[in-house]
């Protein structure tokens, strides 16, 4: 950590306007672009249109990139031009040895440039290493069926939801094969070697949907390596999080089940008034016969309800299609028990 502090101190000395990691915001991004020459503005603008700057890191990394890019273009033109001039000029130069001073200053100049590149890049990199306090924690893993993102309330989904202008701590769990968590719009790529755990953070600054991808070559299907990161506009993440958090778990079971039924999207397919939607109604659950597609009949027990919620394809009711998604990992076990109690209470 001392080393990182050293880097940050050096960067701060080199660039007094550099924002501290935790306070970096989208509003500060223009200040960080100061080193880029005015002539670079059209290129920088075009680059932003091709790849939006959607995190606090993006502007700094683009600055670093453009600084090196302009020097690379300049150097390539100078080298090509020098060779061309040497063969096209009318007469030869003066014989003799090259001044030592020319070599010395070339080396000093090159070293100074390299140092500037290093400090410019190390500044944002050092910021990336230190997770700010109070960051929203999200656990990330690339599992057998694709990405999984686990939120503080235990809710698991295959889409990453992020608040705008708030730091998010991403904790990566290594799998049996290496993967990277790459979001080009954030200029963020975290490598997760086999079986290791890594921490990183990001602070989104632009609402929208951004692509998450693992860039490590893999035998998996391409779609399993891709996910979507949704950055919610102001207040959107809080609403989404409230929705997925479900009801308070200390409610009586039937009431908890009823709230879960309303908040977890069950109403889209199952009614409590006997009407038929995509799935069977819950009305009269205990009273009616439960005949399955394969002809078998099951008892309307707690276990059957629990199985239908967590592994809905295991038993499919006659007359309905197996379209229900699994809620495994998305509901607290008290919610599942509450739903069972609520469904059985409906006469």
């Amino acid at each position: 950590m001392n080393f990182l502090a050293l880097i940050q101190a050096a960067a701060a000395a080199a660039q007094p306007t550099a924002p501290a990691a935790a306070q970096a915001t989208a509003a500060q991004a223009p200040a960080a672009q100061a080193p880029v020459a005015d002539a670079a503005a059209p290129v920088a603008q075009a680059a932003k249109e091709l790849l939006p700057q959607a995190s606090t890191f993006a502007a700094s990394i683009d600055d670093s990139f453009l600084l090196i890019l302009w020097f690379a273009v300049f150097l390539a033109i100078v080298v090509a031009g020098a060779f061309a001039i040497m063969v096209l000029r009318p007469s030869a130069g003066t014989a003799g040895s090259t001044s030592r001073a020319l070599y010395r200053w070339s080396a000093v100049g090159a070293f100074a440039l390299v140092a500037v590149f290093f400090v410019q890049g190390a500044r944002v990199w050092a910021d990336m290493q230190v997770v700010p306090r109070g960051a929203v924690p999200v656990r990330v893993a690339l599992e057998e069926k694709g990405w999984s993102f686990t939120y503080p309330n235990g809710y698991v989904t295959n889409e990453l939801h992020l608040p705008i202008d708030r730091a998010v701590k991403l904790t990566f769990q290594g799998a049996s094969e290496p993967y990277t968590f790459a979001v080009p719009a954030f200029r963020l790529q975290i490598a997760v070697p086999v079986g290791t755990r890594r921490d990183a953070w990001v602070q989104p600054t632009l609402a929208g949907d951004w692509e998450v991808r693992s860039t490590v070559p893999s035998l998996r299907k391409a779609e399993e390596l891709v996910a979507q990161a949704t950055v919610h506009a102001e207040g959107g993440y809080e609403k989404w999080y409230q929705d997925i958090s479900g009801p308070p778990l200390d409610l009586p079971p039937v009431e908890l089940g009823q709230r879960s039924y309303q908040m977890r999207g069950c109403t889209q397919c199952h009614t409590v008034d006997g009407a038929k939607l995509v799935g069977p109604t819950f009305k009269g659950f205990l009273a009616r016969e439960h005949r399955m597609k394969d002809g078998s009949v099951v008892d309307p027990s707690d276990d059957y309800i629990k199985e239908s919620i967590l592994d809905p394809q295991a038993k499919v009711v006659e007359g309905f299609e197996p379209v229900m998604p699994s809620f495994k990992g998305r509901l607290h076990e008290l919610e599942v028990a509450g739903l069972a109690a609520y469904i059985k209470s409906l006469q």
Partner: peptide, 14 residues
């Protein structure tokens, strides 16, 4: 150089 500078390098690996 792009790949070796830590900030840009992390974005460009792979």
């Amino acid at each position: 150089v792009f790949l070796a500078v830590p900030g840009t390098g992390a974005h460009l690996q792979n």
